[in-house]
């Protein structure tokens, strides 16, 4: 049984994901300019692109949600970037649901494999 259009849902998810992520990124950037510092780093340190001082290495993944709620500019940007990373992942998820409904088991297995690899990349490694 199939009562929804996968391609349409996919298209909407992709659009919402990109717009949502850009929203948080821009919001974080504006806050960064207004506050002039974030997470103990000055604006000039954060905006230095010729050295790798303030990179994703100093941002703890577990703090993204709480940091964003506390309106920490760096974590808001990080939240935007992670929404972006999760956007294509959700497309695989939508496809998986459809394959399950169609009882297309070889493709259920294949999308599960892709999701596992993605989860390993995000969480384990």
């Amino acid at each position: 049984m199939k009562d929804w259009d996968r391609d349409h849902v996919t298209s909407i998810i992709l659009r919402v994901g990109v717009i949502g992520s850009l929203f948080f990124i821009i919001f974080g950037l504006v806050l960064l300019f207004v506050k002039g510092h974030a997470d103990g780093y000055s604006l000039s340190q954060i905006s230095t692109i010729t050295s790798n001082k303030v990179t994703s290495g100093v941002l703890n993944l577990g703090d993204i949600i709480s940091g964003s709620i506390a309106l920490n500019p760096l974590y808001l940007i990080a939240l935007g970037l992670w929404i972006l990373i999760f956007t294509p992942v959700s497309v695989v998820f939508v496809a998986l649901i459809e394959f399950i409904q169609e009882k297309n088991y070889s493709y259920v297995l294949m999308s599960l494999y892709v999701l596992c690899i993605l989860l390993i990349a995000i969480i384990v490694l």
Binding site: N52, V54, S56, I85
Partner: peptide, 16 residues
């Protein structure tokens, strides 16, 4: 997305 999540852990992504 796969590469980016690993890059994130390795500190290769400069948010600004």
């Amino acid at each position: 997305a796969t590469g980016s999540s690993i890059y994130w852990r390795l500190g290769y992504i400069q948010p600004f």
